[in-house]
Each structure stands twice: as C-alpha cells, then as structure tokens.
Design a protein around this nucleic acid. Sequence first.
DNA 1: GAGGGGATTGCCT
DNA 2: GGCAATCCCCTCG
Length: 203
Amino acid sequence: MNAVRLAVDPLTAAQRLLGATLSCRGVDATIVEVEAYGGVPHGPWPDPAAHSYGGPTARNAVMFGPPGRLYTYRSYGMHVCANVVCGPDGTAAAVLLRAAVVAAGEPVARGRRGQVLPRESLARGPGNLCSALGITMADNGIDLFDPRSPVRLRLGAPLAAQAGPRVGVSRAADRPWRLWAAGTPEVSAYRRSPRAPAPGASD
DNA sequence: GAGGGGATTGCCT
DNA sequence: GGCAATCCCCTCG
C-alpha cells in the first residue's frame, strides 16, 4: 500500500505527489503542481488557510481520515477541486492538486474541456484538472489506492520541486506551501487572493 | 431558515 | 486588472 508514504506531514506528502500519476475515467495525468494544507490550531500542522482548521464538519470529514483518500470540494459554486488526504488517520491534512500533464487519453480530456486549448492548458488549474479527468463531487472520500476505485493514484519518483506561496488563499498567504515541478509550462499562474492581507503581514 | 463567503475561471475593458 | 457566475456549507438567530 502506497498510502503509508502519504502518512506524513503535508509538505513532505506534497513533494511525494509531484510526478505521481493520477488516472480517472480514460485519462492519465502526471501531477506537476500541488499545495499543502494542514489542520486544526493545536494539531501537528496548524493551518489557518485549511478547510480543516475549524475542526471536523460534514464537508471536510475526509481530511481527518486515513491518507490516500480523495477529498473533493466545490469552489465558487461551479468548480470541483481535488485533494489527496495525507498524514496519519485522525490528523487533518491534504494536498490540493493544482495542475497536471495529460499523459494518456488526451482526446477524452479535450472532449471534457469542450474547447480548443493548447495541450499544456488541459489540466492547468485545480478546477480544470478535475474537469479534464472527469472528477466530480460524487468521488469524495474514495480510496485512491483501491484497484476498484474510478480514480487511482500511482506514486513514482518525485520530481525536482520549486516552492512559493499558495494561490488564492486569504489567510497564511505567505507560507511557501505551493510546490511545482521545475521548468514545466503546465503550472498555473500565480494569483494572490483579493482578500489576502498585504505581502509580509503576519499569519 | 436566512445570509455570507470561498484553496476559481474566463471574458471584459 | 476587474468582475461576474453559482452552490454548498457553515454560522448565527
């Protein structure tokens, strides 16, 4: 079981997910950009920007469960974003998948995106990644290492990573928990949240 | 039961 | 760079 390799802190898990292959409904994609998220204030990785910061709720319950599961949430009412749960069972942590390179099933991915796009844009951005792979809210909580699952994850040799601040978060905006594979054009553009305090302000 | 916010995206000027 | 689209979920009364 590869899930044990994710039973670690979110930043280490994020590093291990760079270069991993995600397979879903006819498309294989190599993960090239991720963001680490932690949990509750008094847990091992307090993170004010994480959905799990306020404790378990119906929405974020999967984040508190065992590693290797898929945590999906709806963003701004229209996009689905996918996370890989990490950390030991009982802790809250996850890694948001922000961009991937489509390695197989490109016509399927193009059909889902429904428009003419350059190859590197097919799964760039967390919402677009889920769209290209066909991941929906119904996939929340599934085991990514179960051969029967419609969404599968295969860990490989991690890629060389660069780090920077997370995109779009309004709290702990300067924490460098966004990792991407050096030199790939598929990584999403950096946008600071409109609600984030000025750069350099304390968490 | 109502109200507000958000780990986004693409199109507008 | 600005902004609208859109839907849970969470919080509060």
